[in-house]
């Protein structure tokens, strides 16, 4: 709904906080999601996501949510679906070139971003939308990716060892292991 969408950008700071919290919960739930299988929970989560974000942001389920970088104003509501800022046709008063009765999505976005803690993320260049991801859950995509990044970060220390001792790694791989340790080998303490 248009009015709620305007409300969301006016309260972008609160929604940013809410979103950060949701993301932490989703990342924490990653082991559970993996056990059930991301594929199996995709549909129910996408349904919830569609309902919640549809109400709040007029979400179009592009599957590649950028709300946190766009001042909580969904860029898919732009009639030109611009992902990187307003076009040159914005009307006086900040109204849309194509739909003159609607506020420009990007005028709202910059307004929302100026209220947010990480509002400067609006300056990041976003790629074009991948239309194969349409309708899928962006929430799950983020939590899966960020959780995977966290996992690989814990392995990064070992990688640095491997990189710093290339000869050892080449000749005696077991002294500077690169591959993730099998679960049985993890969490062992010295006898």
């Amino acid at each position: 709904m248009y009015r709620i969408r305007l409300f969301a950008t006016r309260h972008a700071r609160a929604f940013e906080w809410l979103y950060a919290g949701l993301e932490r919960v989703m990342i924490a739930a990653d082991p559970v999601f993996r056990r059930i299988g991301y594929q199996r929970i995709e549909r129910p989560v996408a349904l919830i996501e569609r309902a919640a974000k549809g109400l709040l942001f007029d979400c179009k389920m592009c599957g590649q949510c950028a709300l946190s970088s766009t001042g909580m104003s969904c860029p898919m509501n732009c009639p030109k679906t611009l992902r990187n800022g307003p076009c040159g046709g914005v009307r006086p008063g900040g109204y849309c070139e194509v739909k003159p009765q609607m506020k420009c999505v990007w005028v709202l976005a910059w307004d929302g971003a100026s209220r947010m803690k990480n509002g400067d993320r609006i300056g990041e260049v976003l790629p074009p939308v991948d239309h194969t991801l349409k309708g899928s859950s962006a929430w799950l995509r983020v939590s899966r990716e960020k959780a995977a990044n966290l996992r690989s970060a814990t392995e990064a220390a070992r990688t640095v060892v491997a990189q710093s001792f290339p000869a050892a790694r080449r000749n005696e791989p077991s002294t500077a292991p690169l591959a993730p340790e099998p679960p049985a080998a993890q969490g062992r303490t010295e006898a």
């Binding site: 030109k80 046709g89 790629p127 074009p128 939308v129």
Partner: peptide, 24 residues
Amino acid sequence: LTGDGVGAGDQPGAKPVFDFDSIS
């Protein structure tokens, strides 16, 4: 360029593409 909306032109019934935006 992003381009003006199709509604501004002589064939307003055309399908707007906007796959890229000017920046991407």
